[in-house]
């Protein structure tokens, strides 16, 4: 089941940037924050919201890639999985692929994710988050957890 919920406004969160007094561009030089840094922070912030089962899921190819990645020895589950970011000098935009738990109000959850991701990224990096797009790719049912493999239809 795929339930796309997209929103590109930063409602529900106030901009916290430029309140810290620490700027990324100073008279003595620039501070550049890499994409992987923003995606790690966003990934962890999204995952810690109650009701998020996992990040990722999504299209057939994305699922296939993550299935392959799980089988590669040494390839850890990346925190940046299911997160894609664009980072500029002062701003960043974040796209999230989310698998939600069954029994949550998805719109409310998306709002909660957005709030947590924006506040974490802005507090940690000093970048202004212009948008957080939440793609709800799948819903995780309680029965998915310990379901035995389907019995063969033919003996």
């Amino acid at each position: 089941m795929t339930t796309p919920v997209e929103s590109s406004s930063k409602t529900g969160a106030k901009p916290t940037s430029s309140s810290s007094g620490s700027e990324l561009t100073t008279a003595q030089g620039q501070t550049t924050i890499a994409d992987s840094v923003v995606s790690k922070i966003a990934g962890i912030a999204a995952r810690e919201v109650s009701g998020v089962h996992a990040l990722g899921g999504g299209s057939g190819t994305a699922k296939a890639f993550s299935a392959v990645r799980e089988r590669i020895p040494g390839a850890s589950q990346t925190v940046g999985q299911g997160v894609s970011v664009e980072v500029g000098e002062l701003q960043t935009a974040i796209d999230l692929d989310v698998v939600v738990e069954f029994g949550v109000a998805i719109a409310d959850l998306a709002q909660g994710i957005r709030r947590n991701v924006i506040s974490s990224v802005e507090r940690m990096t000093g970048l202004e988050v212009t948008e957080v797009n939440v793609n709800v790719n799948d819903i995780h049912l309680p029965s998915d957890d310990n379901q035995p493999a389907e019995p063969a239809r033919v003996q």
């Binding site: 620490s22 700027e23 990324l24 003595q28 030089g29 924050i33 890499a34 840094v37 790690k40 990096t125």
Partner: peptide, 29 residues
Amino acid sequence: PLPPIADRVRAVCLPFASGRPIDVYVDDL
């Protein structure tokens, strides 16, 4: 938070910079 870290790094670099800009890159976490 990363900006204060970058500020500390920049402060440490100042004696070596001799007027050049100090660009701090946070490549990973």
